[in-house]
Design a protein around this nucleic acid. Structure first.
Ligand SMILES: [Mn+2]
Ligand SMILES: [Mn+2]
Ligand SMILES: [Mn+2]
Ligand SMILES: [Mn+2]
Lengths: 235, 235
DNA sequence: TGAATTATTTAGTCAAGGCTAAACTTTAGT
DNA sequence: ACTAAAGTTTAGCCTTGACTAAATAATTCA
């Protein structure tokens, strides 16, 4: 479904869309991915057919909601790998782009979420560019993840709620969950995304409905300090 | 030159060659890479033309020296990534094969050598299979690397010499190098592979000829403990 | 407004890597 | 030794993602 080539085009379109206006031209995309306008035109037709872009012939292209989400995921992978290469493997900031350009295409949600946790949920890549979160949006305030999307086998701490309404907060009380609760995702069930979680305090294992998991922000239980790097212009 | 497909075929041939006899059949390769004998036959012709295998039509194929080296490099990457996924990201031993199957195709010598060092030069992957070293051969005794192939910016310790002859040992004396000397590779010069190294003790920077760097075994200065995992049959 | 310029698409081709069906070797069994 | 079975290659076709050259649309400018 998502080939390396398609992913590179979508990421290029996202970049151009963020920089310039909202419609991006065939030629500019061709330049970005280092191919010809003819090849790009063919690709844009395909991206349009598959619902990743809205393509008005002769008038460029715009990412659909779906396409935007996919492109943000690729950007997330790219920047997390860059962070890893610099922060853990000791590469210089100017040596990592090409390698990340390949690593970004390894497609495994579990891999990238675990890498994210391993790195301490960094907010900025080595070039000072923001790293999208698991929800496909840039991290706003603090490093945090929806419990519904957090990796398994890692001790987490509840740092916030998406829905602060009374009914939900009351329900959390029933479940024994509050801010600061430490827990680990033991199992994620494919059927509906419900979770088996274990509370760190009591060692008790409990089932959690997706409606709850989708409304809880969590963070790694002992986060690493966040390191900020100098800025540059590339991805 | 080396596409993902070619790499997968070469690795499959290496596996079959290690398991069974030295010539491996078209059908067995087809099975291993999950394609058809017809497609495999075409690929084997190509691998033969490019000098990676010796192909006798109707009588199977054998890796050339060159092909064997390439396949061992792929195996090295595969197993190092598996080790990383289990040891650092907390995956289970039975969750990592598919992901490593993709990661192994990210081709950067510097990346894989740094990853190796980061992991403490592990000898066995999470399945108990040996991890080839940077020289394309299985690691014999201890985790060690040729200085000529060691990553930069990492403190190393000299743990052995490849050539134990008197002239070389005397030359080491002149250079101020002996077993236990701790040093860091500052720069590797593309021209002939000579190195700028810095001695940890004296902070002194010195040039080292490739003829020396190729004869010194080094290890990470503070190696992590080596963890041994249960055995299984897959890669 | 009517070229001239620029941007984009279409047409035609190619290489890599798959596939199925058919032909052809090799091997095994009697 | 000859034939049946099994293994391998060849022939013909397909998809993806490139390319160049030519046609067509959009834009700019006199
Ligand atoms: Mn890329
Ligand atoms: Mn970047
Ligand atoms: Mn693979
Ligand atoms: Mn393995």
């Amino acid at each position: 479904m998502l080939t390396v080539s398609v992913e590179n085009y979508l990421k290029a379109i996202l970049h151009l869309q963020v920089e310039g206006g909202d419609r991006v031209s065939t030629t500019s995309i061709a330049k970005k991915v280092a191919s010809t306008p003819a090849s790009t035109s063919a690709m844009l037709t395909k991206l349009g057919e598959r619902g990743w872009v809205e393509h008005r012939p002769y008038h460029g292209v715009r990412l659909t909601t779906k396409g935007h989400r996919v492109a943000m995921d690729i950007l997330r992978r790219h920047r997390l790998w860059e962070y890893f290469l610099v922060d853990r493997l000791g590469f210089e900031w100017d040596e990592v782009h090409e390698i990340a350009e390949e690593l970004e295409h390894v497609d495994s949600k579990e891999l990238i979420n675990r890498l994210d946790a391993f790195l301490g949920f960094p907010k900025l890549d080595p070039h000072g560019d923001p790293i999208p979160g698991p929800n496909g949006r840039f991290r706003s305030v603090a490093a945090r993840t929806l419990l519904a999307e957090a990796p398994r086998n890692l001790e987490l701490v509840v740092v916030g709620v998406v829905d602060g309404g009374d009914p939900f907060l009351r329900h959390l009380g029933v479940l024994g969950v509050q801010l600061g609760t430490r827990l680990t995702v033991m199992e994620r069930h494919a059927f509906d995304g419900s979770l088996h979680i274990k509370f760190a305090e009591t060692e008790e294992v409990q089932m959690l409905a997706p409606s709850v998991a989708e409304r809880l922000w969590v963070d790694q239980s002992n986060p690493s300090p966040i390191i900020v790097f100098p800025e540059t212009e590339d991805a």
